[in-house]
Design a protein around this nucleic acid. Structure first.
Lengths: 150, 150
DNA sequence: GCGTTATCGTTCAATGTAGAACCATTGTTT
DNA sequence: AAACAATGGTTCTACATTGAACGATAACGC
């Protein structure tokens, strides 16, 4: 039957994605310089990629699909390491504003450099075109899951 | 520069995959019937998919890219729920053999059924062809990461 | 055969996350 | 403006996973 086949394929796609995510995570954890966690690297990277000066913890939590509690934990680590500073939001007494520091920028660059060789190996093995070809699908898939998550 | 662009794209692909994996995980955790964990469902599914009668814990750990300790934990849960039974390996006094039970098969079917509606929604939104189109790439990517993980 | 090295499974401490409860503040309704 | 709902951030508990150490057994080299 046609639908059964489609279900199997899509299920397998999700399974592969889960495994790849897992493998990439542990590979990333190994290459990242010691004190920088994956979640922490993600946050620092977020600032750099979007060229942000400040962002609230709750927006960060939403951006990374993580609970507020988890983001509090990550930010506390980052602040203890001196990679971000956390100020009160003058416009909203409930809120905070997270800012990346110079040291944080350096750490994120070191992290990005540590990832580069592995990425190049992947590119060499699979070809850059292949990555470009699947990216739109993945983006759409993420958007749908994101929206479906109530 | 060309290589820079390729690096950005591939990095983004890995990022999307990580996020999708995360979203799929939490969605799966919510739909699965209460006492069945994601890891547990994965193990039960493994038996069904490959039509295995028995498998050693260490092979399961490798198949799921998980430490032996994590697999011990998962299997203890599954055994406590009566979904698998764990015997000594007669051919190797160090080893154990894990077997799925009838109850375990039922649980895995219930789990599969609970996932189905969500999968159908994805299929409807993206089209089955799209999934089929990206699967080979994902399979290769997984194989490479797998091999690279020394 | 014996010593060394590898493998199997378990245990333990540490880590990172989810989920729920909570307090303070803001926004909305009436 | 008073009541109620929603939001921002923290804390706490529970849980799944890693990494390392361990004891038992097996495999290998000589």
């Amino acid at each position: 039957m046609k639908q059964d086949q489609a279900l199997r394929v899509s299920f397998q796609v999700m399974t592969e994605i889960a495994i790849i995510g897992h493998l990439a995570d542990t590979a990333l954890a190994r290459t990242l310089p010691g004190e920088l966690s994956i979640a922490g690297f993600g946050v620092l990277n977020h600032f750099e990629r979007l060229d942000l000066d400040g962002e609230s913890p709750s927006k960060l939590a939403r951006a990374f699909q993580v609970t507020k509690g988890a983001m509090t934990y990550t930010l506390q680590q980052l602040e203890a390491l001196g990679y971000v500073r956390i100020h009160d939001d003058p416009a909203d007494a409930r809120g905070k504003i997270v800012r990346i520091t110079v040291k944080g920028r350096k750490a994120r660059n070191a992290g990005a450099d540590s990832v580069r060789p592995g990425m190049l190996k992947l590119l060499e093995a699979l070809g850059g075109d292949e990555f470009a070809r699947v990216l739109p699908f993945l983006t759409r898939l993420r958007a749908i899951l994101d929206a479906a998550r109530d």
